[in-house]
């Protein structure tokens, strides 16, 4: 098991900032999920920012996987905000007719995402 996913995870003031890579395989998402949930638990995290600004491809499975991660965090009492989805990715998701959970908080950039957390 190598570190085959280039994801950066940063902790700033009890907030976890996760920069996601351009393309993610199923196992990659699984790895990311495991890592960030474990980290959030250990470091007493209050809010998570998932940064999608580098993501270029997103399918139904990826969307659902991240929706599930958001649900897991909400069970742990942690607020999750999706940040920086590209217009192209959004277009694709709408074209795929993905059932979008309107309760998830989204922000256009990290700055706005951070103010939403506080």
């Amino acid at each position: 098991m190598g570190e085959d996913y280039n994801t950066s995870v940063t902790v700033i003031k009890n907030n976890l900032i996760v920069a996601l890579p351009a393309e993610m395989t199923d196992s990659c998402i699984h790895n990311i999920e495991k890592t960030i949930i474990e980290k959030a638990y250990q470091k007493n995290i209050q809010g998570v920012l998932l940064n999608f600004s580098m993501v270029t491809v997103m399918d139904t499975y990826t969307y659902q996987a991240f929706e599930n991660i958001t649900r897991v965090f909400s069970l742990m009492g942690i607020q999750t905000i999706w940040v920086g989805l590209n217009p192209g990715v959004v277009f694709g998701l709408i074209d795929l007719d993905v059932a979008i959970n309107t309760r998830i908080k989204m922000a256009i950039n990290l700055e706005i995402g951070l103010t939403l957390l506080n």
Partner: peptide, 12 residues
């Protein structure tokens, strides 16, 4: 409805 969903995904 689709358009509003898309803007929501952009955080708007």
């Amino acid at each position: 409805i689709k358009i509003t969903k898309a803007t929501k995904l952009m955080g708007c």
